[in-house]
Structure formats: C-alpha cells, structure tokens
Simulated scan of single mutants.
Amino acid sequence: MEGLSVADANLVMYLHPSKSRNVSQSILRELGSLLFKFNETFDGVLLAYDVNILDKQAKILSGVHPYFGLRLKANLLLFSPKPDMLLEGKVVKLSQESIHVIVLGFSSAIITAENIRGEFKYRTKDTEELFASKSHKRHVIKVGTMIRFLVKSFDEEILHIIGSLISAHTGSIRWLDRHLEEDSEFDRSSMKSRDREWLGDKTVDEGATPMSYDNHIKMSKKRRITE
C-alpha cells in the first residue's frame, strides 16, 4: 500500500529534571504521545518508532526551568497519504450514497456516490447492501470487504480521507488480485503457445531444442528479478 514510509530521524528531546530518574521511560512516553497524530515535522502520522539514545550525558539548558536535552536517533514508520496514492482499507458501512472505510485501523475514509464509477450498481441481496459490478459478477463490495481506492484529499487534523473508485484498478482487493493472476496466467499460456509455434519452425541444425530454449527463458527471468 502506498502512503507508508520509513524515515531515519535525528531528534533532540527536552525533559524536565523531575524525569531524570528514569530517562528512557520518559522518552518513550513522550514519543508515545505523538502516535497516531499528524506531525508537521515528520510530514505524516507517526505509527511506530524505534529509538536509540545517543547522548551519555544530558545538556542542561539555562533558564527558569532548567530542562535538559538529549540527542536521539529514531527509525519512524509514517503514514502520509497524498492525492492519487493507492490505499487499502476495510468497508465498515455502506449505503446508496457512500462507502465508509477504515484504513490501518485508525483513519476513516469516505467514498461518495459521485466518486464511484458507473460500473458499480447499488443493490440489496437478502437485506444486505452492496455495490456489484455490471461487468464482472464476482466483483462485489460490501461491509467487510477489503478495497483498494485512490486518495482525493486528506484532512490532517482529523485524519479523514476522501477517496475514489473511479479508476479501473480500484475496487475489491480480492477480486483485483485474482483478476490480475488470471491475466498473468493467460499471458503465460499465450507466450508458451507462441514459443511452441516458433520452435516448430526451427531446424535441428540451428540447435534450438525445447530444453535449451526453456533454460534460456528461465535465466532471463532471473536476471530481470535481480536487476
């Protein structure tokens, strides 16, 4: 899923002298207070962190309240959705006018009717509300479905996302992944058929036996993966 990133950060944390007895716990508590909130410095929502204290001795700051500063090095997991990014979430509510989604268990998203492509038709089945594709009968979105959608906007203050299902590569993740696998299998089958036809035109003198040709294909695939 897009919108997730890992960042290395060099931080300085200022603590009150009353917290000097247990510095590590105080640092973790301060960082914990930043979780699941948008932070302008990080340009994202902090989801997790791993911190290492660099200073062996703290530097006392002069002033009325003599805070002391510690240098930290932290690895941060950030969530920063931008327009046109692909996100994934679970449908928690659905009506004819909108689809409500939860992303990563904490951020809410809404996809309104005007942002749902015409392929999907709202209907009820056995009192259950759902959006069903008119082109693909098995492509269904209902409560509990994991979907992939595009970001239109993101409200940083309330962590709310406006999403879209206009693009053809959005919808039920299960159906999209299965459809992609079927297309890949079809492409592989077509390629094998073309390979057999090509081999049939070769002569023994050209040294293109089925075994040597298959080995060449496998080696090519390995090079593309490693590159």
Rank of each mutant, 00 (worst) to 15 (best):
K82W: 03
S167H: 09
K152W: 05
L76Y: 09
L130G: 12
K134Y: 09
V143C: 08
V143Q: 12
K134W: 10
S107E: 02
K90D: 15
L76S: 06
S80I: 10
F149A: 02
I147T: 06
R148N: 00
D155G: 02
F120S: 06
R117T: 00
A113F: 13
K134M: 12
V64E: 06
R117A: 02
E119K: 13
L78D: 14
K90T: 14
F120P: 00
A58K: 01
T145L: 13
L150P: 01
E129W: 09
V103M: 09
M85L: 02
N75D: 00
L150S: 11
K142P: 01
H100T: 00
D50T: 06
K125E: 15
Y49W: 02
S133Q: 13
G144H: 12
S62F: 06
G69C: 02
S95K: 14
K90S: 13
I162N: 15
I162V: 12
H65L: 07
A109E: 09
R123K: 15
V91T: 14
L165A: 05
L86H: 14
A168E: 05
F120K: 11
E129G: 06
V45N: 04
I147K: 15
V64I: 08
V92K: 15
G44M: 02
S164P: 10
Q57N: 04
S135C: 04
M85G: 01
G89T: 09
H100L: 05
S133I: 05
I53F: 04
E119Y: 13
A74S: 07
P66S: 08
Y49K: 07
I111G: 07
S95H: 10
S164V: 04
I162P: 01
S98F: 13
K90L: 15
K121W: 12
K142R: 12
S62Y: 07
A58S: 04
F154R: 03
S167A: 04
I116E: 01
E128C: 08
H100S: 10
K152V: 08
D155H: 04
L72M: 03
K137S: 15
L47W: 06
D50K: 12
H169C: 03
H65M: 07
F106V: 02
G63K: 11
F68Y: 01
S98K: 14
S133E: 12
K82A: 00
V91S: 13
V91I: 12
K90G: 05
L46A: 03
P66C: 06
R148F: 00
S167W: 04
D84P: 03
L61G: 08
V143H: 11
L72A: 03
R148Y: 00
F79H: 10
L76G: 02
E97H: 15
F79Y: 14
S108G: 05
S153C: 02
I110W: 10
